[in-house]
């Protein structure tokens, strides 16, 4: 099956210039060569610690920030090469759901206006017809039609996130990039929103790029997952395989660090060595070697090539 999203060699470097009179420019390689594909209707997870570049990937895919290099193919169309009018057409088919439900809605607009506006801009529907579509979307995400005339501050975080999801659905997209969609919510509300997203995925055949730092959320929602470390993917594969038998030492560390619900199965606390280094000055060789128990001389000098779903010189084999 042809993938709906095909990302290869994606790069985004930010440069920061500081100091006067002799300024120093540091280049932060937020995303440094990322490849992955997403099949239609598939939920693809992107997981990693804070600052590993996963949100940057999400935005670069949609060209909300301009990537520096690489190709992004959406359904065969080159997103990076798209003209501004072609990009507008593309945006009807790929949408984003944000992490912070408080800043993602315009405080001065009613929910109705927020949902009706994209329909008008894209010439899909106007007036009563558009309002009917908006009411339908609200129902689909589990909110009463009376929400139309209300303002964002009248809703809770979970309700706002539902509104954000409804807004993403206005243009009937085929792909939704969800950037930590439940991280800002209470655990009980997280479950409801995740169920809603899963339900929408099934009903509408939506493909997802699901960005999260929460392994359990990814494990439940996604079929395939990529683990990112310092701007690069270090391991990729089906969720069951990656999390039950992680091959990269970093993935193993992440898995062992995530809490286990059953207390009797809880072992000793895993050892987590060090912190994520700055992307402005990544260590030479394999970026993970300063925190890795299996590191050898080779790891300190040569970055491992990505082979068989993992980028490691000494992957776990069990």
């Amino acid at each position: 099956m042809t993938p709906i999203l095909d990302v290869s060699g994606l790069q985004k470097h930010f440069s920061v210039t500081k100091g006067f009179p002799r300024s120093v420019t540091t280049i932060v390689k937020a995303v440094d060569g990322v490849d992955f594909t997403v099949a239609p209707g598939e939920a693809f997870g992107l997981v990693g610690e804070s600052g590993c570049g996963k949100s940057t990937v999400a935005r670069a895919v949609l060209r909300l920030i301009e990537p520096d290099a690489g190709t992004v193919l959406f359904d065969g169309t080159d997103v990076r090469a798209a003209s501004s009018s072609a990009l507008i057409r593309l945006r009807e088919r790929m949408q984003i759901v944000f992490q912070d439900p408080y800043s993602s809605l315009n405080p001065r607009r009613t929910i109705g206006r927020t949902l009706v506006e994209p329909l008008g801009v894209h010439g899909i529907a106007r007036g009563r017809e558009a309002e009917a579509i908006a009411r339908g979307l609200l129902e689909e995400v589990g909110l009463p039609p009376t929400s139309m005339t209300r303002y964002p501050h009248e809703f809770s975080g979970g309700q706002r996130q539902r509104i954000g999801i409804a807004r993403a659905l206005t243009l009937k997209p085929a792909l939704i990039v969800a950037d930590e969609p439940v991280s800002a919510l209470d655990v009980s509300v997280q479950a409801q929103v995740l169920l809603l997203l899963k339900d929408l995925q099934k009903r509408r055949g939506l493909a997802f790029v699901f960005v999260s730092h929460d392994l359990s959320v990814i494990r439940w929602f996604c079929t395939r997952v990529a683990v990112m470390y310092l701007g690069r993917i270090v391991e990729q594969g089906p969720v069951a395989q990656v999390f039950s038998a992680p091959r990269h030492p970093y993935t193993r560390m992440l898995r062992d660090a995530s809490p286990i619900p059953n207390p009797s199965r809880r072992g000793v606390l895993p050892r987590v060595i060090g912190e994520i280094p700055s992307a402005a000055a990544p260590p030479p060789g394999c970026h993970f070697h300063p925190r890795c128990a299996r590191a050898t001389e080779l790891c300190r000098s040569v970055y491992p090539t990505f082979r068989d779903g993992v980028a490691c010189h000494h992957p776990h084999m069990d």
């Binding site: 935005r59 909300l64 990009l87 507008i88 949408q95 944000f98 992490q99 801009v121 206005t170």
Partner: peptide
């Protein structure tokens, strides 16, 4: 703010984002 980014993602022009939102 994310609602500005959301507007861009929905294909709104810069002028619309700035003057309407």
């Amino acid at each position: 703010r994310a609602f500005v980014e959301a507007g861009r993602a929905l294909g709104f022009s810069h002028a619309r984002v700035l003057f309407v939102h």
